[in-house]
Design a protein around this nucleic acid. Structure first.
Lengths: 338, 338
DNA sequence: CGCGTCATTGACAACGCTTTCATTCAAGGA
DNA sequence: TCCTTGAATGAAAGCGTTGTCAATGACGCG
């Protein structure tokens, strides 16, 4: 049986109240007594019981992070950032992920199951009504990550996707002379995919063009599927001013590999750009032009916001907006034109 | 204020004991009463308070996973596997990581701080005496991941590194004709690095050779540093029968990139092999010959073992050994010889 | 010398749950 | 009819904290 506050009290010849005061650094305890209690605590190796403590204080110092998936560097970096920030703020982090590729529904249920969390940060891949509804009912502080919850009741951190994607497209169009875009996204309902696609069309519109629906593909953000698609179609895509815009770097890398395998020179015969600036982007051949999404920062900001909110339930909802950054490497053909 | 068991009891006109029995699926409650209680629970949206529950039951259904770092796919996959298995076993997972590149010392402290965890799985990068000592004192079930704790008191899951590295080396030496090895590891004290290095020498010894100390490098497992090293030295490495053995795929990818940049043909002028079979391995040019380490399986097995142990504190320590698998692609030059 | 003040400490009531033990009541056997 | 039995339920004792409030005693002042 673990040593309890009572054991310490007995050993130090004081009451449990005094021990509690010492543990919680209350000022109103005599220096001598404090020393005696501290000795007892060390000798006994006493650790306050977190359950009893939580029962009184109604907080666990644990926050949750809910992600749609755990696969790949994108989520992994978010977790890393979140974890560091959580530790920084004195919290522990527990990670939840949706089973399968379902929406985060089952997840939220899992969370509601127990009242152990002080709050959660939720990242949703598709912001359905159902998800919104569940979100509104979560009985604890919530911050929404990357969901564009306009004026919702929650704090949230958003990536200004549109801005990043537009910057990328402008570069590709104006500096690299792209005219025909081939868009490779994730699921059609995915919020990121939608934002990137819109940006693509917007910039094309600026030069009086549009994207051919036949040039739009919806995959699953994975390298292999993109590689397969590339292997099948890439010969149709070759041409000066043609550019593949993959909604993440992994898929861009897949296209690049398919191009290499087919003996197609990138960017001379076909330009390729990605999104996220994950580690792969520097490892492809040629290195990828892409947009750096501050992944770990996203995680960190979400947790920071969450902890602030836990500390002050009254303050009005805040929104943190993170800006992506254009990263120009060689796959876009920039070097060819300058 | 949240709804408590008492509210439910009042609403259903029963005592809290009965409500508790219903919640915990005890059989000894009349069908009609049970129905009444369940209705009340739903109407009120009652959720048992996890703290109170934990206080009585002395378990939180939360387990910890301690990693030396959170960077990169290797750890990310371990987390993913662990997370899935934890959910499977009815636990939540909280992840801890060492600050900086320090040993896991501060970590374990952080964990001891609170008594909330039912157990922890610990992965150590360097098994120092200090770490061992701390490990022995952790006041809860522990499983050690990949640490070769011989006959230690803990359950553990090990990767049979040696076996994998030897298989790789045999292939490289016998099928690909390697004679001079260039070894690129992580820190000299890193257990993985040591195992891989030993295997390298062992197989070399089998053909009456050894590795030249000048051909051994200790980096940090990162792509960039390997790339830099490669850029500096690679011209010295060219030669038939010469082969770079990088202790992970990222570094191997760095070397490959340096080779590409220098116009060196891999594997014709220099063979390169990696370790882990992370996603990069399929994306390099040429694709990497490597050893597949079942990363997510490692995480899952550790958690599985941990949960079993929590369920039965008496059973003798178990050890799960996972075997890596040789993955032959093109960077080793195999195709050239067959 | 008596009394108010203040610093220090202790007693005890929560917190919300599980679990043991006692109680109630209906049915069945003698 | 009375007693035994067993199923269903309730009362109450913790579990280990925190926080409120009261008690104690030393000290200074009138």
């Amino acid at each position: 049986m673990a040593v309890s506050i009572l054991d310490v009290a007995k050993r130090a010849n004081v009451s449990i109240s005094t021990v509690s005061r010492v543990v919680n650094r209350s000022e109103l305890v005599n220096a001598k007594t404090r020393a005696r209690v501290e000795t007892a605590i060390n000798e006994l190796g006493y650790r306050p019981n977190a359950f009893a403590r939580g029962l009184m204080l109604r907080r666990s110092e644990i926050v949750g992070l809910v992600l749609p998936d755990l696969h790949g560097e994108f989520y992994s970096e978010i977790i890393r950032g979140a974890n560091i920030q959580a530790r920084e703020s004195g919290y522990n982090l527990v990670v939840f992920s949706a089973r399968d590729r379902d929406d985060s529904q089952p997840l939220l249920n899992a969370i509601q199951r127990r009242t152990l969390l002080d709050g959660i940060a939720v990242m949703v891949s598709e912001l359905t009504d159902r998800t919104q509804e569940v979100l509104a009912q979560v009985p604890m502080p919530v911050v929404v990550l990357d969901g564009d919850v306009n004026g919702g009741p929650h704090d949230n951190v958003v990536i200004n996707q549109r801005e990043g994607a537009v910057a990328l497209m402008r570069h590709v169009v104006h500096a690299c002379g792209a005219r025909r875009m081939l868009f490779i996204g994730g699921l059609e309902t995915n919020v990121d995919t939608i934002a990137r696609y819109e940006a693509c069309r917007q910039v094309l519109a600026e030069i009086g063009r549009d994207i051919d629906p036949a040039d739009v593909f919806h995959l699953d953000y994975e390298y292999e599927t993109a590689y397969n698609l590339g292997t099948q179609r890439i010969s149709d895509w070759i041409g000066d001013g043609n550019c593949v815009f993959a909604a993440n770097d992994e898929m861009a890398a897949g296209i690049l590999a398919a191009a290499n395998a087919a003996g197609i020179a990138v960017p001379q015969q076909l330009a390729v750009v990605g999104f996220d600036d994950t580690r792969v982007a520097r490892m492809t051949h040629p290195p990828l032009t892409t947009v750096r999404v501050p992944m770990s920062r996203m995680g960190a900001s979400a947790i920071e916001l969450l902890c602030e909110r836990i500390g002050d339930m009254e303050r009005p909802p805040r929104r943190v907006s993170l800006s992506p950054e254009l990263v120009i490497r060689e796959s876009c053909g920039h070097a060819l034109r300058v």
